[in-house]
Amino acid sequence: MAPVTEIDLRSASVRELNGALHRAEPGTSWRVLHPGGAHNLAVGLDAAVDVVIDGHAGYYCAGMNQHATVTVHGNVGVGVAENMMSGTVRVRGSASQSAGATAHGGLLVIDGDASARCGISMKGVDIVVGGDVGHMSAFMGQAGRLVVCGDAGDALGDSLYEARIYVQGRVRSLGADCVEKEMGPEHLAELAMLLKAAGRDDDPAGFRRYGSARRLYHFTTGNSY
């Protein structure tokens, strides 16, 4: 196994950390010690490196990630993996608001809860949340899949485009133009694949599927003047 390079944020700055990760060769492994909830950790990575953050991270952790695998052994602040393009981001604890915001691709796994606006404007990312998500999750979600193993808060999927949502628990309310849809075999297969990728053993049969009724973003004669 390749040696792990450790960067201790008690002595190194966040800029030094991110600079080192931007210059890292693909296949290398990194461990970040004493993150102390600092913002902007491991942002803008563009190579298949493996980064473990040993503690809590602040805002925008692993933002804009491409190819890299980032694991946070703690909680994360606002906007984890925002605008991710590819790769995998895993949060062992819970995430604050806007997790995976506008992300185009890759897999974001949150083992704990995610709060408000999880997956806001998601554009192709897959998000699997082990616990609950807060209000307005998947707001204006355009593409990708959001899997919630716990409960969802108010206005789930408000103004949804084509992102698909699976929820195992209770949904407090659906947002504008978000409806429950039938769970076909292709959806069960897709959900099983996502749960497996997230390392979870929940039964896909216990989930419900939600999606766009497509009444809001298609112009109809009722919308003309």
């Binding site: 102390g36 909830g37 600092a38 809590h56 602040g58 805002y59 909680n75 602040g77 819970s94 604050s96 608001q97 809860d113 709060s115 408000a116 807060g134 209000h135 808060g153 108010d154």
Partner: peptide
């Protein structure tokens, strides 16, 4: 405002943590 403000409190590892609803 941020979790990092709470991260050093005694017993935070086993605290119930949540973000209040609107």
């Amino acid at each position: 405002s941020e979790y990092r403000c709470l991260a050093a409190l005694p017993g935070i590892e086993s605290a119930r943590i949540f973000e209040p609803e609107p």
